[in-house]
Design a binder for these strands. Structure first.
Lengths: 356, 356
DNA sequence: CTGAAAGCGCTTACAG
DNA sequence: CTGAAAGCGCTTACAG
């Protein structure tokens, strides 16, 4: 399957120099060399330090983390398990987490679970074998392995979607409030013929968004049965949005406003409205949750709840560190805000009259 | 900086069982246990094998790859260094590479270099310390570390953009041909007032696309000086496209057709055309290179050269394996094709008359 | 100020 | 069929 793996080293590549090579060249013990490599300078004469440093330069020594990890029993590696790389929101979470980890001297394994329980478990076990010290679970799914890790108290942070197998540290927005804000956005514009579009099966995030939306509308006097629910299965949210919109059209009169639980679902629904010649937002206002930067460029017709994915990374890493420190982990709920993309010539703020 | 790292293990988490634990429980030597863990069953009695397996189950043993890596001097880890995670094309390359690696039993470190030479080097050294066996360089930049790695014969594959520091195995499309196809697309529609938009500084890919475009037009009889070049600096291609389009408008008459070297540049240029009330594609046809799936949903006005990023991963991994096997690495050039996104009601194929 | 020694978890000739 | 031993590269008490 992997022919030629027998000779993994290019003939050119000499074996990497080890601490022993440095020590030999500098005429010191490996212990001393190790201390100097690790910046413990107080315990060696200036002359020795200089000699060792020269040797390090000369052989171009770089520490081998595998040896260090084995001995110290720590790897400084974190794994991110993520459901769907080609969703821009996921990419933003990935990028910010990667940057925050690097700033703290960690490196990141990336695992694409495709929202599949079997793959998720395969990765969890593979990562454990690699000595990973913490797990960032972005939109995880229930699985036996996850349950086992959670029960074993393995350090984990759940992002966007809560732990589907029990309690767990969480980073995300207040999804109930986000749904409620979307509801108010419609309400203040006098739009009360409403629908909501979401993927199936439901994650905690979806459920919270939808229920926050419906409960707020109920508070405003819009009875829940007036709000049409349309769901469609699938991982590819644009298709989900298209399919759900189509299902909606088949069942009922077209609404004046639609909440889509993600930007991509809104993109899919939009395409359907265009095929049906429904003017957006004039005849039907579309609101979604994500706030992708893309919206300003390609979707000026969309109003979206901005989720600060770029700030997630810092929070995720802080939370992980507090878990390692055996602190009681407290969820990190980040602020969201609703905003129009403001395309060419479109005023960009939502005006919120005070009071109902 | 990382408070509490002194106690990295949750009190709950018992030390992971080692091969020694298995051996003790099964009453065999560590050697024997190791062989059985590694599937070398021919050398132990069936009874011993069963006993060891029971012990493995009982202590819930999982092999520690750090120990294995140290001893075998191989890690089965590959690193991907990539310039810009929030570009959908990059995400597609990432996803397909990750999947191909997993299929072959490798895991992947992800490093976001932000197109910065210093970060690229920081990562290269960090990855080497982690014992990484191969490097996937997506849109790399020139840097001293890269030069050093290339000279040392470290296994590397360059993706999309060629090695900026000398020769190197490459996976991508034929960028010259892609540019030429875009030229023909305009030519066959009778559009010869043309401009080309690209980011600065120029990568090999950009240069090849632009020169393929211009050379083909020259062949067709359109003199090079008739083609307006507009570039803008930056990493964020949508802004680059907008800025370049703005610069174009400031300098000259608006063209009838524009080649944008990436989809995102086209999105940016599109926004500018909308602000200027220029009908697209009626008054100005936009062609780009990438072929993002998003186009069909949000950019029906765009014609794009489809690049099979989803197939890159397999090719990358095969190429890496051939390099490990000391085979002479041959570049992998994948097929592209030009296509309209085909939005609602728009016919989706480009008709290509035969002959000029 | 410095070094010898043990050991992290594993694999692998080698001997029996 | 099985095991004792060496060693991958490193760190860390401990002794001097």
């Amino acid at each position: 399957m992997t022919p030629g793996r027998k000779t993994p080293s290019k003939s050119k590549a000499a074996a990497a120099p080890s601490l022993a090579d440095v020590a030999r060249l500098a005429n010191v013990s490996i212990s001393t060399a190790s201390r100097i490599v690790n910046g413990e300078l107080g315990r060696a004469s200036a002359e020795t330090v200089a000699r060792v440093r020269r040797a390090i330069e000369e052989v171009r020594y770089h520490p081998n983390h595998i040896g260090r990890s084995l001995r110290r029993r720590e790897s400084r590696i974190v794994a991110m398990l993520i459901a769907n790389l080609d969703n821009p929101a996921m990419a933003a979470i990935m990028a910010s987490t990667e940057a925050a980890l690097r700033a703290d001297g960690y490196v990141m394994f990336l695992c694409d679970t495709h929202d599949r329980a079997d793959l998720q478990d395969e990765y969890l076990y593979a990562m454990r074998s690699q000595g990973v010290e913490g797990y960032v679970m972005v939109t995880s799914v229930p699985s036996p392995g996850l349950k086992e890790f959670v029960e074993d108290g393995v350090p984990m942070v759940f992002v966007s979607r809560r732990n589907p197998c029990g309690p767990g540290a969480f980073v995300g927005i207040d999804n109930v409030a986000a749904g409620a804000d979307a509801a108010d956005h419609f309400w203040f514009q006098g739009i009360t013929e409403l629908a909501v579009l979401y993927p199936e099966p439901n994650s905690s995030a979806t459920q919270e968004r939808v229920s926050g939306f419906c409960r707020r509308l109920e508070t405003r006097g819009v009875p829940p049965e007036r709000i049409i629910h349309a769901a469609a299965p699938g991982l590819f949210h644009m298709q989900v949005g298209y399919d759900a919109a189509q299902g909606l059209a088949a069942r009922t009169r077209w609404p004046r406003g639609i909440l889509c639980v993600s930007d991509q679902i809104a993109y899919g629904a939009y395409r359907f409205t265009q095929e049906c010649k429904i003017p957006v937002p004039a005849a039907c206002a579309l609101v979604s949750i994500d706030g992708s930067p893309l919206n300003a460029w390609l979707a000026p017709w969309l109003t979206s709840v901005f989720v600060p994915y770029g700030d997630f990374g810092r929070q995720i890493v802080e939370l992980l560190i507090s878990i390692w420190g055996d602190d009681a982990p407290s969820d990190r709920i980040l602020p969201h805000r609703i905003e129009s993309s403001g395309g060419p010539g479109i005023p960009s703020r939502v005006q919120e009259p005070d009071g109902a």
